[in-house]
Amino acid sequence: MSPLSTVLQEKYAKIQDETWGCVVKPILLLLSLLTALPIQAQTRLNMTEGVTDISQKVYGLHMTILIICAVIGVVVFGIMFWAIIHHRKSKGAQAAQFHESTKIEILWTIIPFVILIAMAVPATKTLIAMEDASESDLTVQITGSQWKWHYRYFDQGVEFYSLLGTLPQQIQGQVAKGQNYLLEVDHPLVLPTDRKIRFLITSDDVIHSWWMPAFAVKKDAVPGFINEAWTRINEPGIYRGQCAELCGKDHGFMPIVVDARTGAEFDDWLANAQTRQAEAKAAEQELLAMQMSMDESMALGEQTYQKVCAACHQANGEGIPGAFPALKGSELILKDKAAHIHIVLYGKAGTAMQSFNKQLSLKELAAVITYERNAWGNDTKDVIQPSDIEQARQGQ
């Protein structure tokens, strides 16, 4: 063998080694990682598959696009680094001199186009399926307000508010935080697992967003508009979400909890809820004839105030200057009882003061107004009765 042939063989072997290290090895490493992706799919660094067919389609689409992007990245960077190493100046490489290449331009236009079409087809199918809320078995209206959710089951006579269930002492760091800190509510949304559920989502005040990752449902709640979504849950269980729109100072205290039950269990719950709400309405009518004492009103009123009013107006009634008015020494409270009742019942347009007419019972409304009129030195001596609230409602 001639010395020239030996040199050429050595150079060829060196090129093979460099190509293996720069291109082949990374590609093999990528392929090994991709084969392990389904196994690692449920780690905290990745999306979850969820418990609905749509959420699993979204997860599959996510994994498909991720793999395509990863392969493109490795191939492109592999070729780029190979070219840099094998055509570097120190090896005597000379830069090619050319202007335009119709073949290359056609190639780098067609290849991305084909890849995008391949990605767009499954993505479009999934998006169309996500928007098809037709032929639903149950409709639930979801209304966001600062900072709670209101749920109403159409044609079932059941509706309720769902508020943060985490204790204030946990938020203030006075006691240990629970397992579901800031992700627990007093009344979860109860849904069946054997039916298609349609959501009608809107808002009373600002823009909220109802987000349930396990269902792959995320829809904005916009005042004056109704957005539509749907789900069909495959597995019973407790699922947690949050408001995903920055909706004000207590945005982080607006969780969503769904209690998914089998069809029979849901039917039992719905029947019991209908009975409880009918009994509550009958009990409210009986309240119209009762007379609450000052002590009873102040005790219940303080509890209600701390639950629904103190976040804005503060526990001491002094409010937050420039944001929420003080109730302590308020001219409206001290001098205009009718206006005080009206603003608690119906809120004030253009402000954060929302309506509590449907959020609180007759007794709670009367008690909290009594408390505000007599706490912090206001001392009007007025005791508001449930009949006063009903009269204000009739005179609306």
Rank of each mutant, 00 (worst) to 15 (best):
I79Q: 14
R261A: 10
G224V: 04
L4W: 13
V222H: 00
T19S: 12
I84A: 08
Q40T: 12
L183D: 02
Q169D: 10
N234Q: 11
M63T: 13
C243V: 09
V257G: 02
N46T: 14
H150C: 05
G78W: 08
Q306I: 14
S136F: 06
S355K: 04
Q396I: 12
G350A: 08
K177G: 09
K196M: 02
T166H: 00
A133P: 05
C312I: 00
T6D: 14
L164W: 05
M80A: 06
K307L: 13
E105V: 12
G322S: 02
P223C: 08
P122F: 07
G21K: 15
K363A: 03
A273R: 03
M130F: 01
G263N: 12
I197L: 00
T380L: 03
K218M: 13
C247M: 03
P38E: 08
S209N: 06
Y181P: 00
A95G: 10
G317S: 11
A129H: 00
W108T: 14
M80Y: 14
L34N: 04
L360K: 02
Y181W: 06
K218Y: 08
K11F: 10
G92N: 02
G157D: 03
H62P: 05
A13V: 11
Y161C: 01
L107I: 15
L8N: 13
P255D: 03
A338N: 05
T193Y: 09
A244V: 00
L33F: 11
E284D: 04
D194I: 04
G322C: 06
C69M: 10
V308E: 07
S361W: 01
R232P: 00
D388I: 00
S90V: 05
Q9C: 13
A326S: 12
L30P: 02
T143S: 06
E286P: 08
F253C: 11
G173C: 07
I110L: 15
E10K: 12
E100M: 11
S145Y: 03
I384W: 04
G178E: 12
F77T: 15
M290T: 14
P112Q: 09
I233Y: 05
A271Q: 13
S32Q: 09
